[in-house]
């Protein structure tokens, strides 16, 4: 059966359409869900095998990137999200979605409502629009078949530098890598200056993935790279239970 994947939209979200296309192209059935309507009927999300929070500037990102979305998420949906994750259903946050997951506390520690870090201003103090090379740190259901080679993806954000409280263990999902495939802090291969070259992380259980670059923009041959498709294909496969 084709799994249904929910893609959350709030005012300011601007990558939902291409994310929906990527899900569909990878064999899933996408549905764009307005956050307000999910808040009005929280159990709606249990109709979906996975949730994706796409990129954008939710609510303008004026207080901090992803802050308002995250506050609403935690305030209205904390309980249903625990139920969702307890059922083994994954959540993927891309760019602004990654920032939102950090703001909710789901990343890095899986503590909803309790923040343990943030994605903050790039070291260049600029929005950085660039192609980057990533390497998967370990093989999980997200990265099956993607380990051991560089993945080329577009990256476009102003706030992607990971800052976490000292002492917290991190489960790194992806690193920015240099030409030799080594994790790098060097600009511009690592456009945000994220420490250790971290470009994406999991929660401790590995069901939640936050990623700053944009796999949904590298799906078709004409995009110049199809390396993003693998991540969506893996997610759809996981949701199918295969």
């Amino acid at each position: 059966m084709t799994p249904k994947l929910g893609i959350l939209y709030a005012p300011g979200t601007n990558c939902h359409e291409e994310t929906a296309f990527a899900v569909e192209y990878a064999g899933g059935r996408p549905a764009i869900l307005l956050l307000d309507e999910v808040i009005a009927r929280p159990r709606l999300i249990l109709d979906y095998a996975a949730l994706i929070i796409p990129g954008g500037f939710s609510y303008g990102d004026h207080l901090a990137a992803g802050r308002i979305f995250a506050v609403r998420f935690v305030h209205h949906l904390a309980e249903i999200l625990r139920e969702f994750l307890a059922g083994g259903r994954p959540i993927l946050g891309i760019c602004n979605g990654d920032q939102i997951l950090m703001e909710t506390g789901l990343l890095p520690a899986g503590t909803i409502g309790e923040r343990h870090g943030a994605l903050t201003r790039n070291r260049s103090a600029r929005f950085e629009d660039r192609w980057v090379a990533l390497a998967a740190a370990e093989e999980t259901f997200w990265t099956a078949g993607l380990v051991g080679r560089p993945l080329r993806l577009p990256s476009a954000h102003g706030e992607g530098r990971l800052v976490v409280a000292p002492g917290d263990g991190l489960r790194v999902a992806f690193h920015y890598v240099d030409e030799k495939g080594r994790p790098t802090e060097a600009y511009p291969a690592n456009p945000s200056g994220s420490p250790g070259g971290i470009a994406g992380i999991y929660d401790p259980g590995g069901l939640v993935l936050g990623l700053m670059p944009h796999p949904e923009r590298a799906v078709l041959p004409v995009h110049g790279s199809q390396d993003g498709l693998g991540i969506f294909a893996n997610l759809v496969r996981f949701c199918t239970g295969a």
């Binding site: 291409e18 296309f21 629009d129 660039r130 577009p154 476009a156 923009r217």
Partner: peptide
């Protein structure tokens, strides 16, 4: 300057 502007959003850029 150019790298400060998103050129791949919408997933249509070739």
């Amino acid at each position: 300057a150019g790298f400060q502007f998103d050129s791949t959003v919408q997933g249509r850029t070739v």
